[in-house]
C-alpha cells in the first residue's frame, strides 16, 4: 500500500507549483490575442484539459491490456481511475470549450467543428463505463469486461476523431494549430506550461484516488481479520474495483 502514497507529497507540491506558474503566465505574461482578446486565454486551460483527457482514455486502455495480460487487480484499479479522471477532465474540457465557442463564435455549440463533435461522442461512450461495471455483479467478470471495454474504446478514440473530421465540409479556421507552427514564443511557452500543469494535476488526482481506494480495501481486510467475517457488512455492488 505504501507504494501508492510514497511519491504523493512530492507530486502534490510539484503540481501546485506548476499550476500556479501556469496560471500566472496565462493571466500576467502572455499577451492578448490580436483577434479575440481576453476570451482566447481560455485556450490555455481548455486545450490541455482536452488533450490530457483523451490521453487518459487511451491510457485506460493500455492499463486494461496490462490487466488482461497479468491478471493483477492493481492494473484494473489503474485503468478504472485513469478513465474516471479522464471523464471528469473531459467534462471540464467540454464546458470550457463551450464557453470559448460562445465567446469567439457566438454559439454555445457548433456542429461544424469536428473536434467538438468527436469529443462529445467519446464522452458519451465513456459515460457507459461506470454503468457497465455497476451492472455486472461478479467482481472478476466486472474487471475483465471493463478491461475489454477500455481497450476497444481506447482504440476507438482516434478512429472516431478521424471519421468525424472527414464528415464536416466546412472547417472553422483553426486559430491556433497544435503543432505550434504559428504560435508566437510567449504563447507557446504558456501553452506547454499549462499542458504540463494539467498533466501533473491528472496524475496527482489519479494517484490520490488510487491511494484512497487501496486504503479502503486494506482497511476492510484488516477489520475482517480483527473482528471476524460476521462483523463485516456484505459488499454491495459497486462500479469501482474491489
Amino acid at each position: 500500500m505504501t507504494t501508492h502514497v510514497r511519491h504523493l507529497r512530492g507530486l502534490t507540491i510539484a503540481t501546485a507549483i506548476t499550476l500556479l506558474v501556469a496560471l500566472a503566465l496565462v493571466f500576467f505574461y502572455v499577451p492578448f490575442d490580436a483577434n479575440q482578446g481576453f476570451i482566447q486565454k481560455i485556450f490555455y486551460i481548455h486545450v490541455p484539459l482536452a488533450i490530457v483527457s483523451l490521453v487518459g482514455y487511451v491510457l485506460g486502455g493500455v492499463f486494461a491490456v496490462a490487466y488482461l495480460r497479468t491478471g493483477e487487480r492493481a492494473w484494473d484499479m489503474r485503468s478504472y481511475t485513469a478513465i474516471h479522471m479522464a471523464l471528469i477532465f473531459s467534462v471540464a474540457g467540454l464546458v470550457s470549450g463551450s464557453i470559448w465557442a460562445k465567446g469567439s463564435w457566438g454559439h454555445w455549440w457548433v456542429w461544424s467543428e469536428p473536434t467538438l463533435v468527436a469529443y462529445l461522442i467519446v464522452i458519451l461512450l465513456y459515460c457507459t463505463y461506470q454503468p457497465l461495471r455497476f451492472s455486472i455483479e461478479d467482481f472478476e467478470r466486472q474487471s475483465r469486461y471493463a478491461a475489454v471495454f477500455a481497450i476497444v474504446c481506447g482504440a476507438f478514440v482516434p478512429i472516431n476523431f478521424m471519421v468525424v473530421r472527414l464528415s464536416v465540409n466546412y472547417l472553422h479556421p483553426h486559430i491556433l494549430n497544435l503543432e505550434g507552427g504559428n504560435l508566437p514564443g510567449s504563447m507557446k511557452l504558456t501553452f506547454y506550461t499549462s499542458l504540463l500543469a494539467i498533466s501533473l494535476l491528472y496524475a496527482t488526482l489519479m494517484k490520490y484516488e488510487m491511494a484512497a481506494k487501496m486504503t479502503r480495501i486494506e482497511t476492510r481486510r484488516l477489520r475482517r481479520r480483527l473482528l471476524g467475517e460476521d462483523a463485516m457488512r456484505p459488499l454491495g455492488r459497486s462500479a469501482a474495483p474491489q
Binding site: 454503468p131 457497465l132 451492472s135 455486472i136 471495454f149
Partner: peptide
C-alpha cells in the same frame, strides 16, 4: 458484453450506439 449484465437491454444500446456512430456517419 451486455448479455452478462443485469440491465442487458440498457447496456447494449448505450455502448453500441456511440461505437456505431462512425459507420452511421
Amino acid at each position: 458484453i451486455a448479455v452478462h449484465t443485469r440491465a442487458r437491454d440498457l447496456i447494449g444500446p448505450m455502448i453500441g450506439l456511440p461505437l456505431l456512430l462512425p459507420a452511421l456517419i
